[in-house]
Design a protein around this nucleic acid. Sequence first.
DNA 1: ATGGTGGCTTTGCCA
Length: 263
Amino acid sequence: MRLATWNINSVRLRINRVAQLAKTSEPDIICLQETKVQDDLFPLEAVKEMGYQHVAFKGMKSYNGVAILSRVPLENVHTEDWCGRGDCRHISATLPGGVELHNFYVPAGGDIPDREKNEKFGHKLDFLDEMINWFPANRSAEKKMIMVGDLNIAPLETDVWSHKQLLKVVSHTPVEVEKLGNVQESVDWIDAVRHFVPESERLFSWWSYRARDWDTSDRGRRLDHIWVTPPLKNALAGASVLRDSRGGEKPSDHVPVIVDLDL
DNA sequence: ATGGTGGCTTTGCCA
């Protein structure tokens, strides 16, 4: 089974890029974040024409929004309302074989890494705290689970273009990295991408729109992740990050991250 | 130290 996660930054504007991903990489499941569309305007027919007959989504006008596009049946579709804001940052479903899939869009956290000066950073930390508590309270590490999404944190030194220069930049501050580590430890999540790409190797999934030349300057960060619980470790069969997707006309600022599993 | 781009539907908010 091939699983992709992608912050699409408007599913309606980039529906053709989703079709391109479906055609060239043939994922069985595509998890999207930042769909930026309320549910009654979601491009459901276009997605079904790509071969994804099982679709779950939770969106709102203009901001946030998550979706799961699947060639295999989805059961127990559920959305959890983190921090009680109703802001459409999570959707989960059970895949054939009883594997539970969670798709997250963690708050970006604004510019200033201080919750006293920046409410958005506080929201991000609170969201992570809820994740840290929710998984062990509701699920065990023995359950087959996959977590994907734009977690908006680059945890490793090689997940950013300059560890030193980003230590005070939201997405790579020690407090965020520590909390993401706590999320990871909560049910023994395994980083499925780093399972295949050594930590010594730089790996990014996002490049700012603001860079003059994203490819040459390469000031990227790895914000998009795929994790699995220990019972799926032996099923991990490969991982890739579709860097080329950052190029061309009207790209998202994120690229798809893919993991293959032998389920 | 600053400002740079992009999407939505704003003339600002969010990333």
